[in-house]
Computed example of a mutant assay.
Amino acid sequence: MSSGTATAQARVDGAWPRAREPRTSRPGRRDPLALWRSPRRRRDLWVFLLLAGPNVALIVAFCWRPVVQNLQYSTLEWTLGNRTARFVGLGNFVEFFTGEGGRVLWTTLLFTVFTVGGSMLLGLLLALALNRRLVGTTFARSAVFAPFVLSGVGVGLVWVFIFDPTVGVLSNVLGRLHVHMPQWFLQPGPALAMVCIVFVWKNLGYCAVIYLAGLQSVPGDVLEAAALDGAGSWRRFWRITLPLLSPTTFFLLITTILSSLQSFDLIRIMTPLNPGTTTLMYDVYLQAFGGYNRGGYSSALATVLFVILVAVTLLQVRFLERRVHYS
């Protein structure tokens, strides 16, 4: 048998040596380092670390590190300025929830509900009024938003003069109308109502401007089509405008709740010693710097406030976002 014939027979019988196929990974499995082996991926990684690294380091150093340290301090019985501290575990939390915690949390809840609800409701009504093409609308929008950018200390001082029972503007007006003047600065109920009124007045412009931006993004042809179909103004607002404003409402609900829970300056200026306005945020200040100097107990209250803020945000994102219409 010639060599050519033998070669052909070997090809037919399958005895011809096959080239070794390259090994491949199993289907469905990816090499986690394959994306970073290319020079382009490595260059993108270094650029990301160069740009985001300093910001991440600052956030860790000045945001998350204090949170962790505050959690550590909350387990100590520590007086500010003292070099020594005693470990008490959950003793500070037990003292808060079995002592004044109920009253402080109830005051915080009332303050949050009235300020958030009032700011958003009045802000929506004001935005509906400012959404019309009238003379002086631009000036009115600026005037409404101005209190939001003012200092809380300055706003509190002005309103203290307004609510003053002796020389205040409000007492003069109520006296001319023969209306009894409440004891705004002495009684817990009127003091809380006073602070809520000032907080709503200060943050009303923020909610109004955000709602105004949402109203201007509502498609006009949809409203015109609904009007041609016979839908009245109230029905158009309830069935079309309000659902399309749900992303704006969802955003405002989160931001205003967080702002209300962290309110401090107005309470500190207007009612510094009234127990009726002692919210959780203000109690953190009182326990640490208001004469008690209880650093560990104040850290425990700050930890409770941090947990409440995180829980409220997660609950809103988890349940309320389902009702948001983004289209």
Rank of each mutant, 00 (worst) to 15 (best):
R65M: 01
T7Y: 09
E321S: 15
T248R: 03
L109N: 05
A288V: 07
L258V: 12
N203T: 12
A34N: 09
F161L: 11
N70H: 07
F62W: 10
L301G: 00
L150N: 04
V94S: 15
A57E: 08
G168Y: 04
R42G: 07
V284R: 04
V56R: 06
T24K: 00
A52I: 09
M120Q: 14
L186H: 10
F111I: 08
F62S: 04
A34I: 06
Q69F: 11
N203I: 03
W238E: 12
V113R: 00
V222C: 10
V198M: 03
W238D: 12
V135Q: 10
L128D: 12
A140Q: 06
T115E: 04
Y211M: 13
G14D: 06
V56N: 05
R176L: 09
F96Y: 04
P66G: 02
N293W: 13
R23V: 12
V198Q: 00
G156T: 01
A85T: 06
T277I: 02
L301T: 03
V56A: 13
R294A: 08
S38P: 04
L280T: 03
P243R: 08
T279S: 11
V209P: 00
S217L: 09
L261G: 00
S298N: 03
P275D: 10
R318W: 12
Q72P: 01
I59H: 10
T107Y: 02
D13T: 15
W16D: 14
V67Y: 14
V198C: 03
S38M: 13
V317H: 07
W106A: 15
E21G: 08
F185V: 04
G175A: 08
W159R: 00
T313N: 06
R30T: 10
L253G: 11
L157P: 03
Q72K: 13
Y326F: 15
W234P: 03
G81L: 06
V310S: 08
T115K: 00
T138C: 02
S151N: 06
L252R: 02
P39M: 11
D221R: 14
A311C: 10
F199H: 07
R86V: 14
L223C: 08
F251G: 13
V158Q: 07
L174C: 03
V144Q: 05
P272R: 04
L50R: 13
L177E: 11
P147F: 05
R20I: 06
T5N: 15
W46Q: 11
N82S: 14
C196M: 14
T303M: 14
S151F: 03
V12A: 11
L130W: 11
L305F: 09
I257A: 01
S142F: 11
G99I: 12
F93C: 04
G175L: 07
M281W: 08
F306T: 15
V47F: 14
